[in-house]
Write a protein that binds this DNA or RNA. Structure first.
Lengths: 133, 133
DNA sequence: TCTTGACCTTCCAGTTACTGGAATGCCTAT
DNA sequence: ATAGGCATTCCAGTAACTGGAAGGTCAAGA
């Protein structure tokens, strides 16, 4: 199967597949006589695995670790769980940050009348830094 | 005031200040005879403004727009409010994405016993793509 | 006077995860 | 023969910095 095929069957663009290969996330596939990449079914499985891990927000490096565990039939599930927990912690941190921003912004927006007049509590807050932050 | 001073008084690293200048977010300051950047109080105000806008998650480009409105004493507050609303929408989208990831991951983590055994619902899910996504 | 150290300058490279484009090669059908 | 649709590689750009190298400036101390 050539790269266009595996791209279509996985939904991952060819550019991205080559990129994953270039950074070592995916192994280098065989090549046809004319130099085209030649993928097999396990390669498709790996690609789909990576795609799903990425969609859960794992970084490419984390995906590499997960993939290694996936391929290692003697792994301990505790290791996987550990990676997942770390990742959740990152997500939670990010969410807390966003929540705080969102909250401050929401308040400022409420306070701003939003018409043609120039006075604006949003700009005032940014200028004075009065709000909690 | 030289860059080290304004950096200390604002909390923004010198590297970042130069970067902001290089991308046009901040105007180029005067220079001393020996070529050092020479900032005045309004420059410090602008830098603090930018810093607070950044801390609310506005992109550098958005900060430039906000700063322009801030400097324009005849702006309409509706414009500011508009920018803030757009930004909040971005934040909300990001949060929704993270919430969904967080939710799926939380469930998978709960299902994984996390010991030395190799079977792992997390890897299984990534492999099969059975879960909602 | 010389030197040391803390500043400052510019420029280049690396980070993350792609994405777009250019120049080129392969393969099949008309 | 040529046109198209695939494939290849390499280079560059995105966002917002951050680190480091090589070098200039300046005030204080021996």
């Amino acid at each position: 199967m050539r790269i266009g095929q595996i791209a279509e069957r996985s939904g991952v663009p060819t550019k991205t597949i080559r990129y994953y290969e270039s950074v070592g996330l995916l192994p280098r596939p065989d090549r046809t006589a004319s130099g085209y990449r030649d993928y097999d079914e396990p390669a498709l499985q790996r690609l789909r695995f990576v795609q799903r891990a990425r969609s859960l927000g794992f970084s490419v490096r984390e995906c590499a670790n997960l993939l290694a565990l996936y391929e290692d039939k003697k792994r301990a599930s505790a290791e996987v769980k550990g990676l997942a927990r770390e990742h959740v912690a990152q997500i939670d941190a990010k969410m807390a940050e966003l929540r705080s921003m969102r909250c401050t912004l929401g308040e400022l927006i409420d306070k701003c009348h939003g018409d043609e007049r120039p006075d604006c509590p949003i700009l005032d807050d940014l200028a004075e830094g009065s709000g909690r932050r």
